[in-house]
């Protein structure tokens, strides 16, 4: 049974079709990779899944309930967290405060307990030493991890990630990918836009391929990555790297 699903989504912007009858779903413990070239509708799909965008047609379901009209804040309160393609953080505030914002909807009310959760999450992401630092001083990779910490700290039911390993390299990207796989295994339904096919092959349970707003392929990771749809867009997805990883 799916936990977070988009059913028959269609959306266009000024005559350009961004999504056309797109249906995707992620069940508890599933990490669904979303692949596609630039302009294929990936971010539009993520925006719709997280209530940032109300689609022209179709609906968003959380636990089988239609939540299309709930909006971004409403979906966040229901346990849908997200990260952004370009990191969005409170620049003049500290790392700790930024992660603390992820607990805005959490049932934990005591400040001390909240701070302990923040500490634990920063530690899990290997950035405990950044706690008191102001976000605007951080590198791109550090910012990416702070954003991830903020999304994860509230123990969301569903998580939608827009290129979570962008800007991270080698062991750092690997560590974040493993962390996300672990989060999914704990029962969280996850969607993840990702260009690094190595990461997709390693952690995703299923993959959806979008092209010009259409779902051109979806299914188990290995089968989809070996299929024609990925081959057709491999130039933009770093297929060489995938082949190197899977070899």
């Amino acid at each position: 049974m799916s936990l977070l699903a988009a059913v028959g989504l269609s959306q266009s912007f000024g005559g350009v079709t961004a999504l056309e009858d797109v249906s995707v779903e992620a069940g508890p413990g599933e990490l669904v990779g979303i692949l596609g070239p630039n302009g294929s509708g990936k971010t539009t799909l993520v925006d719709a899944l997280t209530g940032m965008l109300r689609p022209e047609r179709g609906r968003i379901e959380l636990g089988g309930v239609d939540v299309t009209a709930r909006g971004a804040a409403g979906l966040a309160r229901l346990g849908v967290a997200r990260t952004f393609q370009t990191t969005r953080l409170m620049e003049p505030l500290t790392v700790g405060d930024n992660v603390l914002l992820g607990l805005h909807c959490a049932a934990v009310r005591r400040r001390r307990s909240r701070l302990q959760l923040v500490d634990a999450m920063l530690d899990a992401l290997g950035i405990a030493d950044l706690d008191g630092r102001v976000v605007r001083e951080l590198s791109h990779g550090q910012r990416r991890r702070v954003e991830l910490a903020r999304a994860l700290v509230g123990s969301p039911r569903a998580l939608v990630l827009d290129e979570p390993t962008a800007g991270l390299f080698g062991p750092d990207a690997q560590a974040v990918a493993q962390l996300l796989a672990g989060v999914a295994e704990s029962g969280v339904a996850m969607f993840m836009i990702e260009h690094d096919l190595g990461v997709v092959a390693e952690v995703c349970t299923r993959v959806v391929v979008l092209d010009r707003g259409l779902v051109v392929d979806q299914g188990p990771t290995r089968a989809v990555l070996a299929g024609d749809a990925v081959a057709a867009i491999s130039g933009e997805l770093g297929r060489d790297r995938f082949e190197a990883v899977s070899a």
Binding site: T50, M52, G71, A72, A73, A81, L101
Partner: peptide, 9 residues
């Protein structure tokens, strides 16, 4: 946008 994504009304 960030505020709304974190459940702030």
């Amino acid at each position: 946008v960030l505020a709304a994504a974190n459940g702030v009304a």
